[in-house]
Each structure stands twice: as structure tokens, then as C-alpha cells.
């Protein structure tokens, strides 16, 4: 619990900000259609490309990355378990099932409504089960099985309705379809990060256990609800707008815990920052590796995140 103004104490913060800014600029000028910075001033079409496609894509990657990393942090704090994240605990799969159902039953529904229903489904399915926090490996194991069952239900429903291609769009995160007017919902993820910032002390205390929380005057049930709402909204938003991106919510909070600790007031800024950097970096890499073809960010992140996670696990012992 340090002062509220020390989100980024020290020079490290400045270096990180400059690094992310450089990545952001790079992201604006890397892609299938060439966009040399010099042409922006002369060519209105180039400016158009920047404003309609590259800028939204860059912002979407930053917002989704920050949101997912915070969602993972909150999930790990509330479950008191370092091995859970939205993609491995059934939340993302629940959101998928939610939009699939609304697409089937109400095809004309607008994107915000779909998101809302997806978030609702995720929230409902997240509260549908309770697990003792005393079993460190049971929680993620259960989450994977639970997510698998829900994912199977979604696949079956999509197959029956001939919507399997749509499902694969949601399951594999991809920013190539992000255009102006189609990503703005993601700003809600930034709002969720702000909510998490306000509740940071309470969430940290929740990690001390139910009794410690009550002893300090916190209502554990209400904090749990708040956390689940944040996690569900962020998961649903990213699944609806860009598709599932694995490992961000797992790797970034673990790294922050290793380096800074579990005091959310101190780590939250770094976690949001790290998530944004990682996702944007993987998106840029996906655009460059097989240029001019793109590799979806979900795939790149699967590899990069997997390697990072293994490294964290092996370094642990």
C-alpha cells in the first residue's frame, strides 16, 4: 500500500513507456500494404489506412493485452492460485458459447448486445462452481476440464448449425480484422483496469484469505462478485472483438509476482503494461514472420507464452 501516484516508480517506468511507445509506432507502419511514414503527409489514402486500420489495430492489441493480463491477475488473486487464467478456467469458452448461442437465436443482435450476453454467460458459468482454494493443482485441472466440456458443447452447437468457421474465428485471436468502428468496445477493458485499480487494496487483502478479509472489514462475497464481473467482461470483450488470446493472463501476472510481489497496488500498472506490450509485440511478430502473410496473434502467443510459462515453471524449482 504505497501512495496512489507511484504506478511507475523510478526510471524503469520511463524505459518501459518508451519501449511500448516504440512498439506502438512500429505497429502503425508494419503490414501488408506498405506505409512509409514519409507518405503520410502527401497521400490522403495513406492517412486513411493509418486511421481506419493500423491505429485501431494497435489500440485493440494494447487494450486486449492490458485487460487480459489484469483479468488473469484478478483470477489468480481470488482463486489464490497462480495457475489459472480466463483461457484455462472456462471463462473464455463460456463467452464463446454465449456469443454462439446469441448468433444462433438472435442473428440480428448488435455487437454490444452480443458482448453483454457473452459476459453474462461467462459470469454465470464462473459462479456455477465452487472449489476449495486449498488444492493448488485441482483448481486449474478442474478449470481445464470445465473449459473443455463447455468448449465441446460450443463446438457441437456450432457443428449442428454449420457455424464451425465462426467458432474458429473466436477461438483463435486475430487482429487482422480490426477496423475503426469494430473495436471500440475494447475501451471497456480499460475501464475494467481502472476498476481493478480502485479495488487493488481490497483484492490484495482477499488473497490473504476469507478470515483476514472479514477481519479488516471487507465483504468477501462482494469482492468475489466484483472480480468475477471484471474477469467475465474482459474475457467476453476480447473473445467477441478479436478472439481468444491464450497465456497473457497467465504469464504476465506470474512474472510481476516474481519481480515485484503480490501487492496489487504496486504490480497492477506493470501487469497492464506488460500485457499490452506482450500482445502488441506478438501481433507485430505475426505480421512480420511470413510477410506478406499474417500469422494470427493467438498462434504466436501460444508459442511465445508457452515458452515463457515453461521458463517460469522451471525457474521456480
Amino acid at each position: 500500500m504505497t501512495s496512489a501516484f507511484s504506478i511507475f516508480p523510478s526510471r524503469r517506468g520511463v524505459v518501459a513507456t518508451l519501449g511500448l511507445a516504440a512498439l506502438g509506432v512500429l505497429s502503425l507502419f508494419v503490414g501488408v500494404s506498405p506505409l512509409p511514414p514519409g507518405r503520410l503527409l502527401r497521400d490522403p489514402q495513406a492517412l486513411q489506412l493509418l486511421v481506419v486500420s493500423r491505429l485501431p489495430r494497435t489500440l485493440a492489441a494494447l487494450l486486449a493485452g492490458a485487460g487480459l493480463a489484469i483479468a488473469g491477475l484478478i483470477m489468480q488473486t481470488l482463486a489464490r492460485n497462480r495457475f489459472v487464467e480466463p483461457a484455462t478456467a472456462g471463462t473464455a469458452q463460456s463467452a464463446e458459447l454465449g456469443i454462439l448461442l446469441v448468433t444462433l437465436l438472435w442473428p440480428a443482435a448488435a455487437l454490444p448486445l452480443k458482448t453483454l450476453i457473452a459476459a453474462g454467460t461467462a459470469l454465470f458459468l464462473a459462479t456455477a462452481h465452487r472449489l476449495p482454494p486449498t488444492q493448488p493443482f485441482l483448481v486449474p485441472l478442474f478449470g481445464i476440464v470445465y473449459g473443455g466440456v463447455i468448449g465441446a458443447a460450443a463446438t457441437f452447437a456450432a457443428w449442428q448449425a454449420g457455424l464451425l468457421q465462426f467458432l474458429s474465428i473466436w477461438t483463435s485471436g486475430d487482429f487482422s480484422g480490426v477496423l475503426r468502428g469494430r473495436y471500440e468496445l475494447l475501451w471497456l477493458a480499460a475501464a475494467m483496469v481502472a476498476v481493478a485499480w480502485v479495488a487493488a487494496d481490497r483484492l490484495t487483502i482477499m488473497a490473504l484469505g476469507r478470515d483476514a478479509a472479514i477481519g479488516l472489514g471487507i465483504d468477501p462475497a462482494r469482492m468475489m462478485q466484483l472480480g468475477l464481473v471484471i474477469v467475465s467482461v474482459v474475457s467476453a470483450l476480447t473473445v467477441v472483438v478479436v478472439g481468444m488470446i491464450p497465456f497473457v493472463g497467465l504469464v504476465v501476472p506470474n512474472l510481476a509476482a516474481r519481480l515485484i510481489g503480490d501487492n496489487m497496488r504496486a504490480t497492477l500498472g506493470w501487469v497492464a503494461f506488460g500485457g499490452a506490450t506482450l500482445v502488441l509485440g506478438c501481433d507485430i511478430a505475426g505480421r512480420l514472420i511470413r510477410f506478406p502473410y499474417e500469422i494470427p496473434v493467438g498462434t504466436v502467443m501460444g508459442v511465445v507464452g508457452g515458452i515463457l510459462f515453461l521458463w517460469l515453471l522451471l525457474r521456480r524449482s
Binding site: 487494496d201 490473504l208 478470515d211
Partner: peptide, 27 residues
């Protein structure tokens, strides 16, 4: 409590600081 276990990676000063939470709600 008799069996308080803290699984969080907190520093001693941070933990003791949380004892002040009821008074300032975090500040």
C-alpha cells in the same frame, strides 16, 4: 487467527500496512 498462513508474496511492511486498511480504506 491460530492458523494464519499467508501465501501472497508480500513484504513485511506491506502486510503490517494492511492492518491500517479499516481506517483509511487503503490510503
Amino acid at each position: 487467527r491460530q492458523d494464519s498462513t499467508v501465501a501472497s508474496r508480500l513484504k513485511v511492511r506491506e502486510l503490517v500496512g494492511f492492518g491500517r486498511f479499516p481506517h483509511g480504506r487503503g490510503r
